[in-house]
Design a protein around this nucleic acid. Structure first.
Lengths: 154, 154
DNA sequence: CCCATTTCGTTCGTGTACTAATCATTAGGG
DNA sequence: CCCTAATGATTAGTACACGAACGAAATGGG
């Protein structure tokens, strides 16, 4: 009823905060990432660092550029982040002997072992969030569409 | 075929980057916000600053706390951001005479006038993104659910 | 009425995240 | 072969974003 009563003002406010997808996206991203903080703290990782570790558990070694492509991050963002992961002892940063420009990012033993603990992270988050896996999968699928749409603009 | 051939390994990789909602959320948020950069540049606003202006166009004056509640941001984040908006000349920051702790954030004339230009922003973004309004609305609705779920954990 | 508590905003320290500029190395065309 | 162009990573500068600590002002219970 309330939504069909707009007979005299046909334009729903284009600038209303409530209507902005970008606002919902920003708040949801900050909120969900915030949920990871206490869960990742025992592993000594921030959320972006966790994502880098996920990428490295899938394949190692990788170059900075390669990680940037996978995570959609600029090398300038990864550079200091990777140094912190090295300080933590989870990765090694070595120049590629075959191409001295490239940096080989390799998992250390500690970094590889960390995967065991990380296996517990996703279940904990889902439990805290209390949203159906169905809905999360639908959301992820829609976000993937948006990501593709953004990439198409470049 | 490839997705139904998992008869011997029933568990889809829990740590695969592809499967992480948090990753899709982070990339989509960065990507969409990135679309705003060239569109907001003529207005002299960053995306977070744009969101603050949206809140102020809905109601002014507002306190820092009030804006923080609306935007789900910490006062520590808003404090320097608001000073930059003041420097730009879009807002004024004055102590409330009735309560010297509180800061009244008020739109200046320039800030109020800026709304006219801002009216063109959402259409430009939607055009660049090239996604159906239907789908954007579905996405916004699902994000709102997730935001509510996050809030429920506090 | 007074002092402990709460509230409001700011500051500090850490960690992303981006653009632009830079440096070293490699690759390619004449 | 050499020199220009392209590539890989780092650095500098700006702007969020958060938790923790802080200082000033208001509140309220005894």
């Amino acid at each position: 009823m309330s939504s069909s009563a707009q007979t005299l003002s046909p334009q729903p406010d284009v600038l209303a905060l409530e209507n902005q997808v970008c606002f919902a996206l920003a708040v949801a991203a900050r909120g969900v990432i915030g949920l990871y903080r206490p869960v990742l703290e025992p592993l000594g990782l921030t959320h972006p660092q966790y994502l880098v570790m996920l990428a490295l558990w899938e394949r190692s070694p990788r170059t900075v550029r390669d990680l940037g492509d996978a995570l959609q991050l600029e090398p300038a963002t990864l550079s200091p982040l990777l140094k912190r992961l090295e300080t933590q002892g989870y990765i090694a940063r070595d120049r590629n002997p075959a191409d001295e420009r490239a940096l080989n990012i390799t998992l250390t033993d500690a970094g590889a072992r960390l995967r065991e603990q990380a296996l517990g992270v996703p279940p904990q988050i889902v439990a805290r969030l209390g949203v159906e896996l169905d809905e999360l999968e639908r959301l992820r699928s829609q976000l993937t569409d948006v990501i593709a749409a953004v990439r198409a603009t470049r």
